[in-house]
Each structure stands twice: as structure tokens, then as C-alpha cells.
Amino acid sequence: MEATCTRPAVTELRLSAFTSHRGAAFPLGPMTLFTGASGSGKTTALRAYESLARLGAGASLREVFPDPVACVPERAAADAQGRRGFRIGCTVDGPAGPVQLDLAVQAEPELRIVGERLTCGGQTLLATALRDPGRRSVQAAWHTAGAAPVTRAPLPDDRLGTALLPLRVAGRTEGQLQVLAAAEQTVVALRSVFACDPQPQLMRRPVAADQGRLRRGCENLAAVLDRTRDRCGGSHDRLAAAARAGCAGPVTELAVEQLGDGTVRALLARDTSGARVATPVDRLGEGELRYLALALVLLTGPGVLAGDQAVEVPAALRSLTVLADGFDRSLDRRQARELLSLAAAVCAEGPLRLVGAVGDASCVRAAAGVTVVDLNP
């Protein structure tokens, strides 16, 4: 696919051994939705993706896995040294070709990376291994293809080695350039993620007007609406159209009201019996609030979402992946259908991708342009 070749994107998620998943490999398209019964592992898959994204952005293992033992596969026995762990990975497609990243993490007795492998076209570009358990480092070897075939050096055992390579590799030989291209492609794709979980109970409160980047829980929705209305009229018009399609009553406008204490709140303007009535969003149901928040996420760009964008990457190569667990949570069938249609249209346009999980698979199977991952046995 052309978009995959020009914009780095994660096209496969591998959960070799992670909580309830063993030997799992999930294809990811521009719009991917996980379906399955409660407990089938939908949330776990999204959590693994977000974990890789945070590691790619430079976070430490302890920040990403505060409870690492919970990630160990169920009923996994410890070895003779009392060690247990988990394994996750992904494939990133882009200008360098398909690049595979695989990570082995020890959860007990100490949290640390014990193995990492970066490969492309059958060539191992980076391999790390824990040689001395007494040291807080792993032995790394990366492809050089110069006077020496590989370069060896220690790397920290609590950080993703792939994310550190651009600071360690000189880029003088053809092999080093290949390593840099693969590592940078992987890091750019991983860190370009916005994990979203709208919280209606928080969205009902007025917020300060200067909170312009949308947060994970979407509690500052009104401030972001205030910003997009003034600076991005096209997106605001599309959002108003989405509100008309998914909210009750004949919605005529999506507005923002300035309150006397300097805060703002969002309003839905409706035409009721010929009279215009403005309803504050705090009076809306959970389904309408989640619908509006997710529509806003889909229709705004990286500069509005509070994610980690690689600003040094040219705009033509940037993409953004939205992670949305419970994509249809609290929505009625009409809202779910309208939101799926909007997401499919936005994802087809190019730089935005969506990986989500839904509880009701019936609407998903009828939607066009969706990669459905069914986790039901």
C-alpha cells in the first residue's frame, strides 16, 4: 500500500507471550478493530501496543510496566533461577521496508530487558542479550558491514535499544546507514500514538480556556473545541456534522460558552419547535459525550492531541495512530455506525490510523475498510 510505503506504520502486533496471549500475531491496517467476548484479550492487545509506543518514545521499563508480573503469561513457570517474563513485538513498514522488532522482558526477580532483536530483509540489524546478571546492562551488537561486521557495546537494560541507536550509530558505512534507517522508521511509527479513553464524568466540568491540547480522557474537550472553531474551521464544520448525525434532536451548532470565571463549556445548539435551545454538554448522556469526544479525536491533527509527535520528521512522512479501547462503549447502534463510518473515511484519507476494541461486532463486520481481529475462540 502506498501510504504504508511512505509513512512508517505498525502493520503487525506480536504477543508471543503476554498475559493471556501466546504465539499471537495480529495484522494491523489503517483501521483495525479487535472484537471478542469479555476477557478475550482486546484490552491486553491495545495495552501491549501502547507499551511498545512508550518504549519507543524513550520511557523506561518501570514507567511502562509498573506491575510487570501481571504481564507474565498465566501459569508460566519460573526457571531454575526463578526467572519469569514476557515477549512482545511488532512489524513496522515504511521506506526501509518491513522491519521486525522483538523484545523479551524479564519480570522476575528483577524487571529488565533480556533480549531485543531488530531485523529487516532477513538481516539482523541489532541483537542484545543479558550476559552478566550482575550488571545493569545488556550486550548489544549492531550491523556495521565495515572493517568489522558488527559493533559491540553495552546498552541499558531498562530502555529500548532500538530507540538509542540513532545516538550510538555513526552512519559511516552502508550497514550503519541501514541500521539507522530501520531504527528511525521503527521509532517514528511507535512514538506517533495517541491513546484515548474519553471519561464522561470529567468532561462535564468547565475547564480553563487555555487548555488547548486534547488529553487522554478528553476532559478538556470544551477548550479544544474553542481552539478548533477559531483555527480550523473545516474540522469544526465536520465535527458539527458528526454531532448532527449522532446526537439526539436537530443539532444546528456545536458551540463554546465563555463563563464569568474564565472557564469555558461546550454547548449543543438545537432547533426545538422553531426555537434555538443551547444545551450544555454536562447534561448529555455518556454515549453522546463519548461519541463527541471520539469524533473530535478523529477530526483533529497531531498539533491538537496531547501525543508524542516526531517533529523533526517531515510532514509528508508523519502519521498518527489513535488507540481507542472501548470504541463503542456506551454508544447506541446509530452512534456506533456513524462513528465507524467517520473513522473509516478519516483513515482512508491518509495520515491517521486507528486501532481500537469494540464490544459489539455486528456493526464492525458491515463497515468498509476495517481490518477485524476476532479474538473469540
Rank of each mutant, 00 (worst) to 15 (best):
A145P: 01
G97H: 02
D93R: 11
A148H: 10
F86S: 00
P98I: 02
T43I: 07
T124Q: 07
F86N: 00
R47V: 13
P68D: 03
G94Q: 00
V72A: 05
C90T: 06
A96N: 02
T124M: 10
R83W: 04
D93H: 04
A127F: 14
L61Q: 06
A77L: 15
D158L: 03
L126D: 02
V105R: 00
C90Y: 05
A148W: 05
G36M: 07
K42E: 05
L61A: 06
A104I: 10
R84Y: 09
Q139R: 15
D132H: 15
S51M: 10
Q106D: 02
D67G: 07
A107W: 00
G89Y: 01
A57D: 11
V64C: 01
G121R: 07
R83S: 09
V114P: 00
P66Y: 06
R152T: 14
C90I: 06
L160I: 10
I88P: 00
V105F: 00
P133S: 15
R87W: 05
R54F: 11
R75G: 14
R75N: 15
V92W: 06
A141I: 14
A80L: 14
L101T: 01
L125K: 06
A147H: 08
R112T: 03
D132Q: 15
A37L: 12
L111P: 02
Q100S: 12
R135Q: 15
E110S: 11
V72C: 11
C71R: 04
Q81H: 13
R47L: 14
D93V: 07
A53W: 07
L125G: 01
L125E: 03
L52G: 07
S40A: 10
A48S: 12
L160R: 00
H143T: 02
P133W: 15
D79I: 14
G39N: 08
T91Y: 00
R112Y: 01
Q123T: 14
G97T: 01
L126N: 08
A45E: 03
G121T: 12
V138K: 03
L160C: 03
A129M: 15
G97A: 05
A45V: 07
D93N: 09
L111Y: 02
L46A: 08
Q139A: 15
R83G: 06
E110Q: 13
L130Q: 14
I88Q: 00
A104V: 11
S51V: 11
L101N: 01
V150N: 03
R152E: 14
P98R: 07
D79C: 14
R112E: 04
G36W: 05
A76V: 10
E50W: 13
G115I: 05
A53D: 05
L52C: 13
